[in-house]
Design a protein around this nucleic acid. Structure first.
Length: 502
RNA sequence: GGCGCAUUGGUGUAGUCGGUUAACACGCUGCCCUCUCAAGGCAGAGAUCACGGGUUCGAGUCCCGUAUGCGCUACCA
């Protein structure tokens, strides 16, 4: 058995869709699991819609997910001559024919409805006769003559009148379709003899020696057409595995126009997702190793991945467009938080660093000075427990790293405005802690509790007020750890500053 | 309209050759912990396995039908 070769073949007509990203992931996992090759082919035959920027964005997305590819990227547009040659060969061999029927103009907007209506009108209950094209049996000599005379034509594949197409899909099982259901599909369009999708895919997959085609289920019925092309070309067909689709909460296909940025992979990068977390989440849509373990490292995913574990029904990507807190699937968010709180610090630090550099919070000494570096890492470790994304380190966590930070309104009214006595207590507490030596979580706690007792207030009042004074937030880590991390002088200053907010 | 595919709690999934109270994760509720919020621990709500027939001693698991959803049906990819 020859070595596995799979490919991911996106069209560069926009950002990387999370459904495509998941297709890429599954191909990659299969290749790595079997020790095969993962290839990339950019299907840029639609010159109108394809952009280099899109290609770049897709490659970036793959890199972000950690999906490296083998061999050179194939650009489909560069192979147009080969595709055309293949079609012309079929023409010579009588396996395809020229269709001189003038091209119909189709309004792009309502194609689907248009097709359905046409079929209803033409076919009725019996369906359409796909072998009725008048040019199907025109002798080649006559066909050549008309072509040479300059008459425009498209090239169509001749599907046999009798027979059944059949293949074993690794996910959906045996698939059958009667030839009568398959049209004589167009291989080359009349305008410039441009090769069409089904032809290009097949010729390229043959050329690239692809052994397994793993792609979205929307191609399941197309496969029968492509199989006819493989046969006409005298090539062995690869194995197929179709993946269930990822749907929106209303069960519609996830699309950019309707659902916006939730479907774009770059959104997750830009909003502070950990690549490994999102990859892990993606792997679990439509696939399960055993239904038990869900948090899996890349190595574990590679080890456990199998086509047999892919299931057949479409999955719903559960998010709420109206609720900003649930802008994406909650399980994805949970998994991201899980990664953030358990990742080795050595892996977390570079991600936070990138975020800090972008936010203007990064300081060179976090790298160059051993004490500063240790403080930085300890602080990350202290606050990461309740963060969901990398963005939170520069957002909610800003006060740990900068003296300019905003006070959360709700926190101020809940913890500072609640008790007027804080106006005097806070500066007094500041004066008290300035005498504490050494300054640790333990000594800070002792000082605060003693102060509260003397002042005749509950420690909680001061603790909560201090949290908002020092961090601007109503929530956060154990307050005495925060005191220690922020430092004695900065803590005292912030306590005094906050008195004006009472 | 035709053809194809799918259908297990709100969501993602597990359920081996059909065999006792349908399992796990997220989310949700409550309790514990506690200086807040998370995390963690404990407990709980939530599924007549789309519906209707059939086969069988017994069906989420097999068969048929219906419904719903999705896909394809294009000189788009």
């Amino acid at each position: 058995m020859s070595a596995v070769r799979v490919r991911f073949a996106p069209s560069p007509t926009g950002y990387l869709h999370i459904g495509s990203a998941r297709t890429a992931l599954f191909n990659w996992l299969y290749a790595r699991h079997t020790g095969g090759k993962f290839l990339l082919r950019v299907e840029d035959t639609d010159a109108q819609r394809s952009t280099e920027e899109s290609t770049r964005s897709i490659l970036e997305g793959l890199r972000w997910l950690g999906l490296d590819y083998d061999e050179e990227i194939v650009f489909q547009s560069a192979n147009a001559d080969k595709h055309r040659a293949a079609a012309m060969r079929l023409l010579e061999e009588g396996k395809a024919y020229r269709d001189f029927t003038p091209k119909e103009q189709r309004s792009d907007a309502n194609v689907k409805r248009d097709i359905a209506e046409r079929a209803r009108a033409a076919g009725g209950a019996e369906g359409t006769d796909h072998r009725s094209n008048p040019f199907r049996d025109v002798p080649l000599a006559e066909s050549n003559r008309r072509a040479e005379a300059g008459e425009p034509f498209a090239v169509r594949l001749k599907i046999a009148r009798e027979g059944r197409s059949s293949f074993a899909d690794a996910v959906y099982g045996t698939q059958e379709r009667d030839f009568s259901e398959i049209e004589d599909l167009v291989l080359l369009r009349s305008e410039g003899l441009q090769p069409l999708y089904n032809l290009s895919v097949v010729v390229d997959d043959i050329e690239m020696n692809i052994t397994h085609v793993i792609r979205g289920q929307d191609h399941l019925t197309n496969t029968h057409k492509q199989l006819r092309i493989y046969e006409a070309l005298g090539a062995d067909a690869p194995n197929f595995a179709h993946l269930p689709l990822i749907l929106a909460p209303n069960k519609a296909k996830l699309s950019k126009r309707k659902h916006g940025e939730v479907v774009s992979l770059t959104t997750y990068r830009d909003r502070g997702f950990v690549p490994a977390a999102f990859r892990n989440f993606l792997a679990l849509i439509g696939w399960a190793a055993d239904g038990e373990q869900e948090i899996m490292s890349l190595d574990e995913l590679v080890e456990k991945f199998s086509l047999a574990g892919i299931h057949r029904s479409n999955a719903v990507f559960n998010f709420s467009e109206s609720d900003a807190r649930n802008w994406t699937d909650q399980k994805a968010m949970w998994m991201n938080a899980e990664y953030i709180r358990t990742l080795p610090l050595s892996e977390l630090v570079p991600m936070v660093r990138a975020e800090f550099e972008a936010a203007g919070l990064w300081r060179a000494e976090y790298e160059t000075d051993a004490d500063a570096r240790a403080w930085f890492e300890q602080t990350l470790d202290l606050i990461r427990e309740r963060f969901n994304t990398i963005k939170d380190f520069s957002g909610q966590g800003r006060a740990y790293f900068a003296d300019e930070f905003v006070y959360d309104d709700a926190a101020v009214s809940k913890n500072l405005k609640k008790d007027a006595r804080l106006k005097e207590l806070l500066p007094a507490l500041a004066a008290r802690i300035e005498t504490v030596e050494p300054w640790t979580a333990e000594t800070a706690e002792a000082a605060l509790r003693a102060f509260a007792e003397e002042a005749g207030v509950k420690p909680g009042l001061l603790i909560n007020a201090a949290r908002t004074a020092l961090t601007g937030q109503a929530v956060g880590p154990s307050m005495f750890e925060v005191f220690a991390t922020v430092g004695r002088e900065r803590s005292a200053k912030r306590l005094r500053d906050a008195a004006s907010l009472v």
